[in-house]
Design a protein around this nucleic acid. Structure first.
Lengths: 149, 149
DNA sequence: ATGACTGCAAACTGTTTGCAGTTAA
DNA sequence: TTAACTGCAAACAGTTTGCAGTCAT
């Protein structure tokens, strides 16, 4: 495969739209979990999300966190990321900056997007007959800080 | 990011090198598990691998399968793949065809490789200071068969 | 001979579920 | 009012571990 020249956009963005679908009832717990995910720029795992939620309002259970995440995934409001160390994290869905470079030493994550994605999409659709729904690129390595040490 | 033109190689290949490092002792069980993984062109999950192993020689336990997989991962002889449905599969490490397109309906998997990988590598190293160790591209969609139905 | 392995059963981790009580609509 | 929710504890699946015995070297 030939891919003459690419450029890299390292970005982070945030949408700011209206109240979303939170199941049929917007309960205190669901709003809380939703807000934490929405306002956080990091990837949160279930445990962290749960702790953050309890810090604000102790009337949240772990099961509700799981149930709400499932809901948000179904509604395509959050993305689930599975890292190499098997940690599962969640982040508010972004319109760009989908892809990740992760430092295997310190865990630092840099996001980027690339036109490769569309090209790949087009080529794959043409050559395999697949209708492409999603492209995910995960890069792992060692960041400059960790390399220095 | 700009990525003017790419082409797609859909391939499968097989290495044929000498006896590998299987921990410190090449036991019957380890050789068996190694051989099954090596000779299989599919991605095997733990359960399938275990069943295949028992069909050949019943003196293998599930724990040994887990322990041997861990060993092979450490030695970089097999790759672990986590699919969207959370199934974990293992395959003999390949020198090409690392990437996957997966049909969300029937589970069919097509492998491919792309020069995007190297370009991405170079760009990311230049722009983020990371030393890139691995690039993984996972595509999901619907295959031609399933689209027809 | 001996310490790197193995099988077994028990432990563990992350996630899901049934149920009785609670609460948003 | 009432059915969609919640918290709790118990169940669950996949994986890991301690231990006593086995086997490759």
């Amino acid at each position: 495969m030939d891919c003459p020249d690419i450029q890299l956009d390292i970005k982070s963005d945030q949408r700011d739209d209206a109240v979303p679908v939170l199941g049929q009832r917007a309960t205190r717990q669901r709003r809380l979990i939703y807000d934490i995910l929405r306002s956080s720029n990091e990837h949160l795992d279930v445990e962290t999300l749960y702790r953050k939620a309890r810090d604000i309002d102790s009337r949240v259970s772990l099961s509700t966190v799981y149930r709400t995440i499932a809901l948000l995934k179904e509604s395509h409001l959050v993305d689930e990321l599975i890292f190499e160390d098997d940690r599962r994290c969640y982040e508010f869905k972004k319109t760009s900056g989908h892809h990740h470079v992760r430092c295997q030493s310190c865990g630092r994550i840099v996001e980027f997007e690339t036109s490769c994605e569309e090209r790949l999409r087009d080529r794959l659709e043409a050559q395999t007959g697949f209708e492409v729904e999603s492209v995910r690129i995960d890069v792992a390595g060692y960041c400059s800080n960790c390399r220095a040490r």
